[in-house]
């Protein structure tokens, strides 16, 4: 078991290396000079040279690349070009907000999506099913940043129920701040999860063991939840994993729309500033998160499906 996990982690190393390399190359191909971005158009050539030397930008590209790889291995992404803050502490400051938003959105998505899917499957081709189908279609079709802007205008600006930006301080204030962005992200998730639940549950409800459960004298709620949904969780797990990844990347746009701190906003800001270290650090963290989520899904599989456990 531990060996399996370690192997899976080892599998991820080439992936992460590829991501690192791509980011490094992409940043260097993009036009724009980080020194000018940091010091401004009016900076003197000596100042620029001095800045480049300090940030390690004066050495050949291949050397920069190896310095970057080496730094990554020792979890040192350097300092922000803009204000000299270590990249690691920038990440540490922003990451919790992104994780908080992702988890909140995921919870709402699951809590809304799965019951919707069950309702649709049980009432197949009837009114509730059609309702869920329309909801899913709308959810799929609306881009989340647009929905976010809409919510912002209606619920924050016009009705004043929610704050317009920021992440808040203290638990209650943070909850208050997270509701709108989380709901925005979650509605799209719920549409996806609802659809997925409906499909997998319908598939499972046609299986022989469902008939066995009914033959035993189990009543419908028990048949559906205990026997049906429990088995539908197997295909659902994959979908939930993918959905979690999508939520993570979706939070980038949402952080921007709601002007929330987080890795997404940090990345976008540093891109406009050509702040290589911050971009590279942020991407590495996101890549690591993706790998971790995939690993987590593997673990969930083992819990959910006893057939995997034994092998």
């Amino acid at each position: 078991m531990t060996r399996y996990m370690l192997l899976r982690l080892a599998d991820a190393i080439p992936t992460i290396w590829l991501v690192l390399t791509l980011v490094f190359i992409a940043m260097r191909i993009l036009p724009g000079d980080p020194a000018i971005a940091a010091l401004g158009d009016a900076a003197l050539p000596e100042q620029l040279a001095d800045f480049r030397a300090k940030m390690g930008l004066d050495v050949p590209l291949w050397q920069q690349y190896f310095n970057f790889l080496y730094g990554t291995l020792s979890l040192d992404f350097g300092k922000s070009y803009m204000n000299g803050t270590p990249v690691l502490s920038l990440i540490a400051r922003n990451l919790p907000y992104t994780i908080e938003l992702t988890i909140a959105a995921m919870i709402i998505g699951v809590v809304v999506g799965i019951p919707l899917g069950v309702m649709a499957a049980v009432n197949r081709d009837k009114l509730p099913d059609t309702g869920v189908r329309i909801f899913s279609l709308v959810g799929y079709a609306i881009p989340d940043f647009y929905l976010g802007a809409l919510f912002l205008i209606v619920f924050a600006l016009n009705l004043g129920w929610f704050p317009i930006n920021g992440a808040g301080d203290g638990f209650l204030d943070r909850v208050h701040h997270i509701i709108l962005p989380a709901v925005t992200l979650a509605l799209v998730k719920a549409a996806f999860i609802g659809r997925l639940t409906r499909t997998s549950l319908l598939e499972v409800l046609g299986r022989d063991y469902i008939r066995t459960a009914r033959a035993k004298g189990a009543r419908e709620p028990r048949v559906i939840y205990r026997h049906g949904l429990r088995n539908a969780l197997l295909p659902l797990t994959t979908g939930l994993g993918l959905s979690l990844l999508a939520t993570l990347s979706g939070s980038v746009a949402i952080e921007l729309v709601f002007n929330r701190p987080g890795i997404g906003r940090m990345l976008i800001q540093s891109m406009t500033e050509r702040d290589y270290g911050v971009i590279q650090g942020g991407v590495v963290v996101l890549a690591l998160l993706v790998v971790l989520i995939n690993l987590l899904m593997d673990l969930v599989y083992i819990v959910v499906d006893p057939r995997i456990r034994v092998k």
Partner: peptide
Amino acid sequence: AMIFQEPMSSLNPVM
């Protein structure tokens, strides 16, 4: 009570 033709698929695989 009833038993079915397909013993392979008539039992719940996750219980």
